[in-house]
Design a protein around this nucleic acid. Sequence first.
RNA 1: GCGCAUGUGGUGAAAUUGGUAGACACGUCAGACUUAGGAUCUGAUGCCGCGAGGUGUGGGGGUUCGAGUCCCUCCAUGCGCACCA
Length: 923
Amino acid sequence: MEYNFRDIEKKWQEQWQASGAYKVSNDSPKPKFYVLDMFPYPSGAGLHVGHPLGYIASDIYSRFKRLKGFNVLHPMGYDAFGLPAEQYAIDHGVHPAVSTDQNIKTFRRQLDNIGFCYDWSREIRTSDPSYYKWTQWIFLQLFKSWYNRRTKKAEHITNLVKIFEKEGNAGNEIPNDKFQVPKIGKRVFTAADWAGFTEKEQQDILMEYRLAYCGYGEVNWCEALGTVLANDEVVNGVSERGGHPVVKKKLRQWYLRITEYADRLLEGLERVDFSDSMKEMQTNWIGKSYGAEISFKVKGTSDLLTVYTTRPDTIFGVDFMVIAPEHDLIQSITTPEHKQAVEDYITYVKSRSERERMAEKKISGVFTGAYALNPFNGREIPIWISEYVLAGYGTGAIMAVPCGDERDHKFAQHFNIPITNIIGEHYDGKEANATKDAKLENSDFLNGMVMRNAMEVVINKIEELGIGVRKVNYKMRDAAFSRQRYWGEPFPIVWKNGIAYPLSESELPLELPHVESYKPGPEGEGPLANIAEWTSRDLETNTMPGYAGSSYYFLRYMDPHNATEFCSRKASDYWGQVDLYIGGTEHAVGHLLYSRMWTKGLYDLGFIAHDEPYKKLVNQGMIQGSSRFVYRIHGENKFVSLGLKDQYSTDAIHVDVNIVDGVELDIEEFKKWRTEYETAEFILEEGKYICGTEVEKMSKRLYNTVNPDDVVNKYGADTFRMYEMFLGPVEQSKPWETKGIEGVHRFLKKLWRLFYDELKGKVWNEEKASPAELKVLHKTIKKIEEDTERFSFNTGVSAFMVCVNDLIDLKCHKKEILEPLLILLTPYAPHISEELWHLVGNTSCILDAAYPRVNESYLVESSKEYPISVNGKLRTTIEIALDAPQGEVERIVLDNEVIKKWMEGKPHKKIIYVKGKMVNVVV
RNA sequence: GCGCAUGUGGUGAAAUUGGUAGACACGUCAGACUUAGGAUCUGAUGCCGCGAGGUGUGGGGGUUCGAGUCCCUCCAUGCGCACCA
């Protein structure tokens, strides 16, 4: 009886489906465990062997937890809205819904091949109206909410209206600190003001508070293509496709006020188990900095120039000011004799794309002719304009301290601006020194103070004198939440007289209409603007971005068929946080931050009981491609094997890895691969054509993709699963090498032969196990349990191999040993385990078995083969009883001939004896 | 430039707490069975050396009886951020 993996795997996959083996109930006395994969965008290219890596890891962990007695939620679905499907529609005329559906079918078939334990009855698709109904619903909750900075949480907007009616907004500052209420020209209004505003005026103010709000933002507009482009579709200021010019255009956009959650997003990182690099990326993205805003009087005017600085201690080292080219003050402060130069400079800056400005290393700028006055000593400071100061960060103006800041220093040198040294010998006149530990000089009342300590002193003084305030700044901007595209969730918003009104809950879902054309609407609006029945209802024409549907999908899985709520409170209370989230690092800041924010919003509004979605995050590494090359002799259709290629002038050509065995080219397949190679000739070495190799990204273009279907077909799903894990730690990136899979496949065959022999048939028996056999089993139980628990699946696989090798050596075919081993193996290789489980006489599903418990008493050793060192160098090993007293050990060691030899007759100085570890004799 | 991560045989890697470096595999070599093998099994396999032995975890230095593991320093690779004041 052979190990016939094809029949076995097909049989069990069908059986599991028929019996609903993976159906999960929300009602269970067992403790819960939630394992989640980052759900895929179903691309047309299908899966390659890199994609399932994380899915296999999570599948192993899910099955493991289930065996350990948990009620495990392990769902899967599709992030089905997105640009590629729309692009495909434009290029091929296939409706996105159709191509997406097709892609999902392929995806599902490929996933099913690998034998995952997903509860498919909970499948979701973000493009499904019954799903995006709730995306729209949550959007409306955010639209109807504001962030109360005093209670530090989201609250219903009606609370804010009540506050305004009672006391105006004096206690609840407008989040955007540049916004002024147009009617009164101030940021602060009274209850009486509020009562006097029209509905439009009131709504405009409320929009400034809403967590989902509408404003104006810049997009990349390409006139020639008549469309809005994403950042990565713009290269060097022109469109990636076609090379048409792209300009910045202000368009009405929706945003999420994620900046209000900046502090809580930072604080939450301390309570979750993410990798340090992941936390760091998010922390950098949020970019919190502490400092002060300081106002400088502009000489001879009533204007105030406000700068943001993190180094107020350097206030006496300010030699010039720099303001962004977009700064409002430019018009009023520029002196007549500098007007022309300033205008020319601003024109120049405007002509350049964001990308060009970022890439530019050249120093540029222009003097305005105006001077600011240092608030402490009245010193006149020239005000310059330069594009290295960004309008969007801080106040769009900086105080430049050349001796302490690299860019300021370069700027000063370039324009010959005299440099004041406030840090004495720490500044060498050639390069800026950003130290915080120098003692201040040339700094008036701060002289002699260490900079680090001076910061607080200056801020206090500034606040005392009323010339500035302590200020915290964030790099993070509010998240743009609209796309001028078709294939996304429609906004449940109606515009009447310039006011955005939410649709009522009963009108949801607002379904995406069918269109024949995906051309953009007028003035950069989305395709929905072309549909008369849509515009006639005054509906919003933008759609939501890709991350909308993925910001709460982990909640919907808990209660996927609920028609009255996005997720019942009972379900979310039961499942709570995702205990284990597995996915790639590419979503480090985008998806993870947005979904964390939505979770916090839903928590604040009382819809769920936890405010961090993911308890633990594991980032799987990328599987890289291992490319193969053939070497064609220049100008000929002749190919030379790797070892001989240096004798010729050759071109390296990528060859499909699937027609190469290891590094040996299958010449017949190669000839068939391309018609041009049909007549190719080959120069071989030792009768073989050897290919060159290189590790690159796995990509169709490089002919190094390997389809899991092919691997599964050849070796089976169990082999594939175990080999993916055997490759190395999940978190690590590594190249795929199909060749190595044989070792894992051999292991499964060896396991099979412990039960059934090709010649003898059944060899397993019901004899009583020996202590040696029990020791092998229990060592394995312990190791597998530990390794699986800490996601060390590669060492887990090798522990199985060691176990089977040991059992073969012991000629052990005993059910008493083999049966528990099958349970251990189930998470890794579910099909073969289930098959053998039934063959040894069980009738229930192996996943319902109890995980074997390690019995330490089988593992106790009475003696150990100690490594014995002399002066730290290993010289021999001696078998010594573990309970031998130190004196006894020393006597045995010193008596040993090998040790005596190495001691060369010298007396021992001391003997280090670590019980159960080693002995070291020092002479 | 800044930050983070990683450097171990021909290859993927292991060594969980400072205690026998290279487990487990791939590959390679030798052998067995065989009409045959890209099947299966056995053995060998870090490097130098006939051997005794020496040497070895990116380089250099340090702590320690003992360092892949801890500290300092330099180098290389990967990822992230990048005029963020």
